[in-house]
Amino acid sequence: MKTEVSPHRGRFAPSPTGELHFGSLVAAVGSFLDAKSRHGEWLVRIEDLDPPRVMAGAADAILRTLEALDLHWDGAVMYQSRRGDAYREALDQLQCQDALYPCNCSRREIADSALGSSSSLVYPGYCRNGMRPGRTRHALRVRTDDVLIQFHDRLLGHRSQRLAAETGDFVLRRADGFYAYQLAVVVDDAEQGISDIVRGADILDSTPRQIYLQKLLGLTTPSYLHLPVAVNVQGEKLSKQNLASAVEADVPLPLLFKVLEFLGQDPPREMLQGELTSFWSWAIAHWSVEKIPALPTMMQINRQ
């Protein structure tokens, strides 16, 4: 499943639930600069894993925006919607390890079992020893244990989590038959040979679960760098759900300049009068993880 690649390979993996907004562009630029500053490759993967949430035409719109900003990717674009066989193979491997079990608990039943809002995401393990009677429709969960999952984030430092206590057994295939994000991202990162994952800190809590799956599947764990998350004036993460505006790539330099400022890279203002080629040359040559603010940063984005 693992692909041999050059020393550094990064990726940008947007979900096509809408067009590219500023928060997603931060992840795109950060992952691009991190790969290219180390003479590595940068890939694009469309995470169209959840058909009900996919917006028609969004994937093509995202790719057009990247091209308009001179964010050129290496190799072919991967689409998760075409990767079902690979995810099924991974599930079969986990099934042979007795790491999976069927679960027909409803969301309401799981929520009602929680002892407070902080524990509402922890699955209580009701179906570990058999499903509830009378329901055939079920998800597949992976068994967790009390092992401490630890990793070093290149910006945020040491991180750790005990999955059994903090998340519980988590879903790898949903009751509607669709594969879960946690499984797909692990399988796809391995298939694409990703060595360095650079993404928003809103995904930070998913990282221990993904490392756990990597260990179960015998895969290499990449390096991680979680970038600060752009939020709106209400303090909410910029997202399609919060109606974040699509970026306008027709005047690219002011937009990209704001991204570099957000990432703490201190770009010189004279770059606003230059060209995209010189902008990217400067940005790649001066990329510094040490300059990125480690805490979430608020930035209200105005249209150009």
Rank of each mutant, 00 (worst) to 15 (best):
H226N: 04
A184S: 13
A294W: 00
Y101F: 14
D50Y: 07
R199A: 01
Y181P: 06
S119P: 00
V231R: 15
E248A: 14
G200Y: 08
P254H: 15
Q161W: 09
S6V: 14
Q95V: 05
Q273W: 00
S113M: 06
T277P: 00
W280Y: 00
V122Y: 09
Q210M: 03
E191S: 12
A76K: 11
H158W: 13
L63V: 10
R107M: 02
A244T: 03
A285E: 04
A61P: 05
E41I: 08
S31C: 08
V233R: 15
H152D: 14
Y212T: 03
R173E: 14
I284V: 07
F22R: 07
A175L: 10
A294G: 00
R303F: 04
V171Q: 11
R159H: 15
V247C: 06
S113I: 03
F170N: 12
R173P: 11
L140D: 04
D202V: 11
D70F: 03
S37M: 08
V142H: 08
L71V: 13
M298W: 01
L238C: 14
Y179G: 02
Q97S: 05
H226I: 01
P254E: 12
Q161T: 11
V142K: 09
P252V: 13
S160W: 09
P124E: 07
T144K: 08
I110W: 02
C103V: 04
I292Y: 00
D189T: 08
R162D: 13
D202N: 07
D176C: 12
S278L: 02
Y101K: 08
T3P: 06
P254Y: 11
D98I: 01
L183D: 02
Y224E: 09
A190D: 12
F262R: 01
S239N: 13
V54N: 02
A114W: 07
D266S: 13
L156P: 10
R132K: 12
L156I: 12
T3N: 06
A285D: 01
T207Y: 02
H72A: 06
M271A: 03
A114R: 11
S120D: 04
W282E: 00
E41R: 12
N302A: 08
W287F: 10
R107N: 04
R137E: 14
L155V: 08
F170Y: 14
D153A: 03
S278Y: 01
V251F: 15
V186Y: 03
P52G: 04
R162F: 09
L217I: 02
Q273F: 01
G218W: 10
R159K: 15
R199C: 02
L33W: 01
E109Q: 14
D169I: 13
G30M: 09
P124S: 08
R209V: 10
R141Y: 10
F257W: 12
F257P: 07
